[in-house]
Amino acid sequence: MIQVNQLSKEYKGTTVLNIENLEIPKGQSLGLVGNNGAGKTTFFSLLLDLIQPSTGNISNNGILVNASEDWKSFTGSFIDESFLIGYLTPEEYFYFIGDLRGQNKADIDALLEKYEEFFNGEILKNKKYLRDLSKGNQKKVGIIATLIGNPEVVILDEPFANLDPTTVNRLKKVIKELAENPEITILVSSHDLQHTVEVCDRIVALNKGVIVKDIQTSTETLQELEMFFAV
């Protein structure tokens, strides 16, 4: 589904990301782990064509992301709170994204109903603007908004950060459900090795912009990763 070729990103002579080759087949759930500055967000930003690669390219379902915009209609993503529109209520935000992705109000309502448990009654019908929600609740809105319009690729940057323990467990359930769908490819980044191993079929570890591990998840994966990141 996603094919990365000779991709690198430099800032004033410093290479922050350098991926020779990475192929993510359709339906896979991939966890991207690494320390701060490993290049996780840079990779996602390149994948979403928010920054330009220094060399190489990424194709999403055969579409070069920096040449055409056609990938946007089947890709849902949430990088950080800057993806939210602060002066809208959560409902208005969902409907707005729905409008952009060709969904009508009923489609959105059906989707929101499905994730009512995940919202824990703190999001909908609260008469609050997004800017007045807590960071964790903002994140819940952002994550569910990526699922609008049945995307085939879902990209979540640090989805577990800032969430309370209950919501983390609910989010894992949500991601696992998505991962079971063979039509959906999921990319999740995290610092938290355990969460990532739990929800992903495959783990890619980045260090200083280079892939240092690429493993299919098994019972030993967590241990292997913890060994690698041990001090």
Partner: peptide
């Protein structure tokens, strides 16, 4: 500007 990144990753 606050949410331009989101706009650019949507199919608009």
């Amino acid at each position: 500007s606050n949410y331009y990144g989101m706009m650019m990753s949507q199919n608009i």
